[in-house]
């Protein structure tokens, strides 16, 4: 994966209010979860406004019924991070479908008490990902789509 050095990250997050805290957390998390990486992109809010924000995008390893799956997620950090929780989504590939439930809506947005009760410094990205791994290990947010069926053929009498 791409090597992201702290200097580059600091430059990327220049509009973040608590840049040093944010950079430190991102650096820590991507060193532990090597399939996540920071990406700068436009985040579109519900009101239609968009803003360039950093997200941690990639996969987290989730163990479900004895197998490990690389669940694709995207964690957006507001420029007020860590004083506001990340906005988190599961990002199904075309071969997957979202399983909506208590923790996941039809858009893939992730809802967790950990996010709802987010409070710096008790809450952080590392803790959040650990909670996700536990919760998703009980109830996966995505499943594989059934393999394509052969074309339908009518019964012939």
């Amino acid at each position: 994966m791409a090597v992201v050095n702290e200097g580059a990250l600091k430059k990327m997050l220049k509009q973040y209010k608590y840049r040093d805290l944010t950079v430190r957390e991102i650096t820590n998390v991507i060193s532990q979860y090597k399939d996540l990486k920071p990406v700068m992109d436009a985040y579109v809010f519900n009101d239609g406004n968009s803003r360039d924000l950093v997200s941690l995008a990639g996969t987290i390893p989730v163990s479900y019924r004895g197998n490990v799956y690389n669940i694709p997620v995207c964690l957006w950090l507001l420029d007020t991070y860590p004083y506001n929780p990340p906005i988190c989504f599961v990002k199904p590939t075309s071969a997957m479908m979202i399983k909506t439930g208590k923790h996941i809506d039809a858009n893939g947005k992730i809802y967790l008490p950990y996010l709802h009760e987010w409070k710096h410094p008790h809450s952080d990205l590392y803790g959040l990902i650990q909670v996700m791994i536990v919760v998703f290990g009980e109830e996966p947010p995505v499943f594989s789509r059934p393999t394509t069926q052969p074309p339908y053929q009518a019964f012939q009498a």
Partner: peptide
């Protein structure tokens, strides 16, 4: 995913 792990998901639930 630029060299990251290949995303995967459990088989379809019934």
């Amino acid at each position: 995913l630029n060299g990251g792990a290949v995303p995967s998901a459990p088989p379809t639930y019934t």
